[in-house]
């Protein structure tokens, strides 16, 4: 296994495709089409880096996360973790790798078993992976994890329904941390939380990143949260990455028309600024991923589209250092 040096990416995703079959027929199921949820995307994540993956519902951002977690078997492409392809690993090898890669889900209500005590929820992975086989050690570790996540160790005896949404999300984070992971996929991890609680959890994620040298893939639709937390950001639309750039570069100088539209659509919490802002609404709706438009998938809604945009699919081009854009009209 290659050395995890700073110059080596922790995770490399290469030409990842995830097509879901659409079937018809009651007894004999025929595949009549494919939903191209993820259609050939590539990116790297460096150790200690937080990569944001943004886009609207159905753009494939969560499916990408699920492929990395091996919760979906990708149609094509490679997912290299420390240089080893997760798609080709055997069960035992994958089980070991799973400890390194953890996930925090959006909905803390449905991702915690309502009939288990908080202590057991956090302790279960410790027992399953044989990390703390002794129950006294395990209890100590559970108390430690709860404290790290800003909860009282006494919470171990409670059930999920006795906690608020914010506290439940902290339990989800504690469970992810119990495996001492290197890499955490945060799939809309703060989206379901109220504004005042969301800020607490964002700060916690930042603290943990610092303390445990964590690498995050931060999947979210809220652009202001992504901007706050991430080092680099990839924007997805209809299964493709349309723009990828360092965070400040992307938000200060968005080049793809879709990124520009997305940023323009976010209202700013300041009535004076809003009164003076021009709003360029992007027309129409996201087309079906079963039957995506030819050429650039954004061209039917694009304000600057030209005839050529329905022709060849635009490739990601590096327009500035580290700033990649898939649009033929950007120069």
């Amino acid at each position: 296994m290659p050395e995890p040096q700073t110059a080596e990416p922790l995770l490399q995703v290469r030409d990842l495709k995830m097509y879901f079959p659409v079937t018809d027929g009651m007894l004999v199921q025929r595949t009549i089409a494919h939903v191209k949820a993820v259609d050939g995307i590539s990116f790297d994540i460096m150790p200690g880096e937080t990569l944001g993956l943004v886009g609207e519902s159905g753009c494939g951002k969560s499916t990408t996360g699920r492929c990395i977690l091996q919760l979906e078997k990708p149609t094509a492409g490679q997912i290299l973790y420390h240089g080893a392809d997760l798609n080709r690993m055997g069960r035992a090898e994958l089980a070991a790798m799973r400890r390194k890669i953890q996930v925090i889900f959006q909905d803390p209500f449905s991702s915690l078993n309502p009939r288990m005590k908080i202590g057991d929820i956090i302790g279960e992975p410790l027992a399953v992976h044989g990390i703390e086989p002794n129950s006294a050690d395990r209890a100590k570790r559970i108390a430690e994890l709860l404290t790290v996540c800003g909860l009282s160790p006494k919470m171990a005896d409670r059930y999920p329904h006795e906690m608020s949404g914010g506290q439940r999300q902290r339990v989800g984070i504690a469970r992810a941390l119990s495996m001492k992971p290197e890499f955490i996929i945060c799939d809309e991890a703060v989206s379901a939380l109220d504004v005042s609680i969301q800020a607490q959890v964002i700060n916690l994620l930042e603290d943990l990143r610092e303390e445990f040298d964590l690498t995050y893939l931060f999947i979210a639709h809220d652009l202001s949260v992504v901007r706050h937390l991430c080092h680099r950001v990839a924007v997805m639309y209809l299964g493709k990455i349309v723009e990828l750039a360092p965070c400040d570069e992307l938000f200060d100088n968005p080049l793809h028309p879709y990124t520009q539209a997305l940023l323009n659509a976010v209202p700013v919490p300041d009535p004076t600024i809003e009164a003076g802002r021009k709003h360029h609404l992007v027309k129409g709706e996201v087309p079906s991923p079963m039957n995506p438009p030819s050429g650039c998938v954004f061209h039917p809604r694009c304000p600057v589209a030209v005839e050529n945009c329905s022709g060849p699919v635009p490739e990601l081009r590096e327009m500035r250092p580290g700033h990649w854009v898939a649009c033929g009209e950007v120069s």
Partner: peptide, 12 residues
């Protein structure tokens, strides 16, 4: 509330 939201119009 106003202080706890990250904002796109202000420096990070």
């Amino acid at each position: 509330l106003l202080k706890s939201v990250p904002r796109l119009d202000q420096p990070r």
